[in-house]
Write a protein that binds this DNA or RNA. Structure first.
Lengths: 214, 214
DNA sequence: CCATAAGCGGAAACATCACTCCGCTTAGGC
DNA sequence: GCCTAAGCGGAGTGATGTTTCCGCTTATGG
């Protein structure tokens, strides 16, 4: 018999028992909710309680708290990529703008894991793919003259980080605030009469941001 | 004789002994540095170590960890007010813009306490005064035609929250990133050709944000 | 100088979590 | 239906961090 505890990933091999799979989803949902309201320092006991399962169940599905957070982060990054893919289908170069509005909604809906969004484990591939998709969206929108030609991919990161700042401060009391902030930021990204003087983060800096661990 | 422990605030009555006052400053400096690098969850022991004092000293000067954070928050809010006051002297309606550049620098220099900036204890007066000063700066800049007439005070809050988001994500790897973000945001606040459609946070929402406790 | 209250350090007490362990329960193949 | 591996709950354990306590030290007014 294999050592207990080594087979708990559902990735390789046999599927989870039906109830176990359901509990896994309940735990992820509960974690998203609890982290969103109490921050990442919320206790795992609270998460298990909200999910309606015991601690043993939580730790059978996820090796530790960090892995639970990482999974939420991967979900959110996947959502971003999906949104970017859908937006890329739109004509007229509006894809980037539509994408950013969707990103705002996704961030607002799952605002618990901001601190780990760029630095979770095993997210390098996802972040890289997101970057690539954003690059394409940006190029398309610039080709159509909707976004200023001197905007670069890391400017879009700045927009997303800005939204994170607004959402993490204001979300509970002013859930619409990020929309106004995004409207302002898009206005700036469109108007190309005034040249930008400050330097955007370089690719080197961006990769350092992604690699930095908590 | 008074109960021990009731007199430790320096507010009412006798001044602190010279060495005690110095230790208090050392503790605040150490706390700012440690929180900036390790976040608010850094241990009190680490702060005492960096300050070069024992735990007893820390707890004689501050009733608990939270009070230490609150004092740092009050310092930063005071810095904002001071910056606003200085900027208000400038001619030509440039005060608001100068103020925001200064706010960026202040935020970047003391980036440890963002989570508590608006919600620390006993900060209501300071936040209210800051709001008032910003209101005056905004009105002045609008009178001179430098800022779009439909901008409101809570838009400036949005700018500050956005900077906080950029700084807390990128500060270590890309310490200049917030400048580019501010440049974009100011661009949007200046260009008044396109009207803003989304609603800025209302005064009610703003006061809820300030009142929400961790 | 001396007296003394204020201040100090750091060990111990206490609280909070993350994580483990184990006896009991149950889904699901036969 | 029955068997059994997979799953479950939740008390227990250890690590980490905050706060208190107390015997020793020192600034400072007279």
């Amino acid at each position: 018999m294999a050592l207990p505890g080594t087979e708990q990933v559902l990735a390789e091999g046999r599927p989870l028992r039906r109830d176990a799979a359901r509990h896994r989803e309940q735990l992820l949902d509960a974690a998203a909710k609890v982290f969103a309201t109490q921050g990442l320092s919320a206790s795992v006991e609270e998460i298990a309680r909200v999910a309606g399962v015991g601690m043993g169940t939580l730790y059978r599905r996820f090796p530790n708290k960090e892995a639970l957070v990482d999974e939420l982060v991967r979900q959110q990054l996947s959502d971003f990529i999906e949104a970017a893919t859908a937006a890329a289908q739109l004509p007229g170069g509006v894809g980037l703008e539509v994408f950013l509005w969707r990103v705002g909604e996704l961030l607002a809906a799952r605002c618990g894991c901001f601190a780990r969004l760029w630095t979770g484990a095993n997210t390098e591939r996802l972040v890289e793919e997101a970057r690539l998709r954003i690059h394409q969206l940006l190029a398309d929108s610039q080709r159509h003259g909707r976004i200023r030609p001197d905007a670069v991919v890391s400017d879009i990161s700045l927009v997303i980080w800005s939204l994170m700042g607004v959402i993490s401060t204001a979300q509970t009391a002013a859930p619409q605030a990020w929309r106004r902030a995004l409207e302002l930021l898009l206005l700036a990204l469109r108007s190309s009469e005034v040249p930008l003087l400050e330097l955007a983060p370089t690719p080197q800096e961006m990769s350092e941001i992604i690699q930095q661990k908590a």
